[in-house]
Design a protein around this nucleic acid. Structure first.
Length: 269
DNA sequence: AGTACGTCCTGATCGC
DNA sequence: TGCGATCAGGACGTAC
């Protein structure tokens, strides 16, 4: 599922494929609920004629500033992925929306479970929810994390999923970071020692940068059709799997209705 | 304010 | 073999 590394991978893909400079000519929405406008028409008629300036990312949101000053916002949801392909190339399965471009290609929004969203905003301000610091570009430090966890009684796993605390973590990389940091996912946020918070901070950064490196590699190797997702984590995520450090069978619990894998030996309460 | 849970979706997988 | 049930989870609305 698209989390920070997957969305950033998509951003780099869109930049490398040369989306900036291209102009939308036609919009084909296959699932109206994905469009966050009261009137679908506002979006469908609002986009053609606009060209893409660049592709930015904020948390799990893709932000495409347009030449008019508006911004096209994309969220991949759980199963979303994007391809920019020649119109003549057969569309892959599960394409929900097609944004036709002026150079004979089209941006294809693939989204089996329809959890993705897209919309157009006049101003970037308030376009997406206020989010915590980006884990990979300054603003994120052990100290910031300590302050964010102070007084919080929710399980650390739930807090890592909270986009207002840290931008971009999802279920898989939250598990990954906790596993690498050897911290039990049900620990109360405020109960982490400063040593643990520092370790968690470092492991969040490590998990994300490791994944991004692999995505960079896979884009080079599989261009122009790189995979949307890779198994870039080290937490065994199948029942019956054993911890790669100590061999103890991994445990599966639910936190906020999310599957949470951890090693009961390495990640003690 | 902080915490927790239901809802939206459908392809894949499981169990009988 | 086939078919129904279950699972998966990001963001948001709502409740307490």
């Amino acid at each position: 599922m698209p989390e920070l590394p997957e969305v950033e991978n998509t951003r780099r893909y869109l930049m490398e494929i040369g989306l900036p400079g291209k102009t939308f000519t036609l919009v084909n929405i296959g699932w109206a609920n994905s469009v966050k406008h009261p009137e679908l028409e506002d979006f469908v008629l609002g986009l053609p004629g606009r060209s893409v300036e660049t592709v930015n990312r904020q948390g799990k949101y893709l932000l495409l500033p347009l030449n008019t000053g508006e911004t096209l916002v994309l969220h991949l949801g759980m199963t979303g992925g994007i391809r920019v392909q020649p119109k003549s190339q057969p569309a892959p399965p599960m394409v929900r929306h097609t944004l036709v471009l002026d150079d004979g290609t089209e941006l294809r929004f693939i989204d089996p479970r329809k959890f993705g969203h897209l919309w157009l905003v006049d101003e970037l301000k308030n376009a997406v929810p206020t989010m915590g610091p980006e884990p990979l570009n300054g603003g994120f430090s052990p100290n910031v994390l300590t302050n964010a966890l102070a007084g919080r009684s929710a399980p650390i796993k739930a807090l890592l999923l909270d986009q207002s605390i840290i931008a971009g973590l999802g279920n898989l990389y939250a598990d990954e970071a906790l596993y690498l940091a050897r911290i039990h996912p049900e620990r109360m946020g405020s109960s982490l020692t400063s040593v643990e918070v520092t370790r968690l901070h470092d492991c969040i950064v490590l998990a994300l940068t490791t994944a991004l490196d692999r995505y960079d590699q896979s884009r080079r190797q599989a261009w122009p059709d790189p995979p949307f997702g890779l198994s870039t984590w080290t937490v065994p995520r199948k029942s019956g799997d054993s911890c790669i450090t100590c061999g103890t069978p991994m445990k599966l619990i639910r936190i906020r209705a999310r599957s949470t894998y951890f090693c009961p030996q390495c990640q003690k309460v």
